[in-house]
Simulated scan of single mutants.
Amino acid sequence: MKLIERDEYLKEMREVEGTPDIKVLTGVRRSGKSKLMDRFAEDLKNRHENANVIHINFNLIDFEDLQEYHRLEAYVEDHYQESCDNFVLIDEIQMCKGFEKAINSLHARGKYDIYVTGSNAFLQSSDLATLFVGRTYRIDVFPFSFREYSTYYAIDNPYKGLTQYLTEGGMAGSYLYRAPEQKYKYINDEVLKALIVRDIVRKQKIRNVQLLDKLIDYLMDNVGTITSVRSITDTLESNRTKADHKTIGKYIDYLCNSFAFYKIRRYDIRGKKYLRSDDKYYLSDQSFRYARLGIKNMDYGHILENIVAIELLRRGFETYIGVLYKKEVDFMTIRNGKTNYIQVAYDISEPSTLERELSPLRQIKDNYPKILLARTYQPEYEIDGVCVIDVADWLLGK
């Protein structure tokens, strides 16, 4: 498989190198965590003359004997070198029974720089504080961005390339298959069925798998739509699926903690407060929807919104849905005390559509930047203080 340099993740891993934290790479399965760990191991050896990299990949049968925490710690201790900088890199850590005991013991010894990856269901963000006694630093790894996709395929026309990315998505493992049906089969079988649903069902001991399946279908079909646990429950029950809001709420938490979906809360711009009810849910990769539900109802507008939402999270923005009176701004972002308002539209060629998308931004009276992202196929321009940017250019960071 062709490999590309994932610069932003490598940069972050280098920046936290040497800190006393346990560095944990998280993200949906098949998002590239293992390849990133391999690349970081090479990077350490290239940059440090005295680096002793103890790299364990539990996907390989070579390390099968270490799938018990006493043996894992003993192996690392046996490979420690006194005069070197000792790095411990462990891939698929959950395959070692009692792994947290080994990691906590190694961390307590204070002589290792530790990095681990694990299954999205067995090493959830909510588990880190209880699993590891020492401090943890989480690095969120997402599927390929549009910029990475463009690099992989050497795309010279970003506007055409975005049309492809809308449906192909960022699951790089699917790029090895030529036909769309084969790509989606890989995503459905290797990611959705085998790795997300199976892992969640196994860890959480879910009995009502049919309800979980229907919930996933509902959330995928309503990407970017204001949703509440109560409304989901009511819809499922109206379709003769027995459900209750407590169970639905738990299942949604499982899906979000496993990085299949990301929940984005609503924020009252005028009242400057978070709104407790009705959130939006976005897929970690838009290809999941097509792999599971098919491509009959493409819904490009919401899929483009999904891509922007994940890109904002990938870039490290604190992201909310902005609410102003009865209007909604797709995204309000905050970073380093600076706010941006972002509206997303697929096509603004019709004057009425353009006016509808500009309207919520015009009503915001503060002086923070206001941006409309759309498929304009032209350089950035401005309307009434709103920057209108082609979404392909924005995704490429231009």
Rank of each mutant, 00 (worst) to 15 (best):
G397P: 10
V28Y: 00
V388K: 10
T117I: 05
H245P: 09
N46R: 15
L162H: 00
E17G: 02
Y341R: 02
E357L: 04
R265P: 04
Y290C: 03
D85Q: 14
R198T: 13
R14L: 10
D21K: 14
I206C: 07
A51G: 14
M220G: 05
L395T: 07
K273E: 12
L396Q: 04
K250P: 07
I342C: 00
N367E: 15
G173D: 05
R265V: 09
K203A: 10
P369T: 01
N86G: 07
L72S: 09
L106W: 01
K370G: 01
K35I: 14
K326S: 15
Y218F: 15
V16K: 00
N52K: 05
D156V: 12
R135C: 11
R29D: 03
S126T: 15
P360C: 02
E168N: 12
E318I: 12
S174N: 07
R138S: 10
L25Y: 00
Y251E: 13
S174L: 08
T339C: 10
E12D: 07
Y149Q: 04
A345I: 05
T333V: 07
K272H: 13
D393N: 13
K205M: 12
K101W: 08
L195E: 15
D384R: 03
G249P: 03
G224C: 01
K272Y: 11
R207W: 06
Q343R: 01
E12Q: 08
R30E: 04
P143T: 03
K183Q: 05
N297L: 10
G134E: 03
Y80S: 06
K205F: 11
S231E: 13
L36D: 05
R109F: 10
L211K: 12
D390M: 04
T353V: 14
Y282A: 01
L373V: 02
P158G: 02
E305S: 05
F40Q: 00
L283Y: 01
V209K: 12
K111S: 13
M1Y: 08
V88D: 11
D65L: 07
T26D: 06
L192I: 07
Y300M: 08
E42F: 13
S145G: 04
L60W: 11
R198I: 12
H79E: 11
Y149F: 15
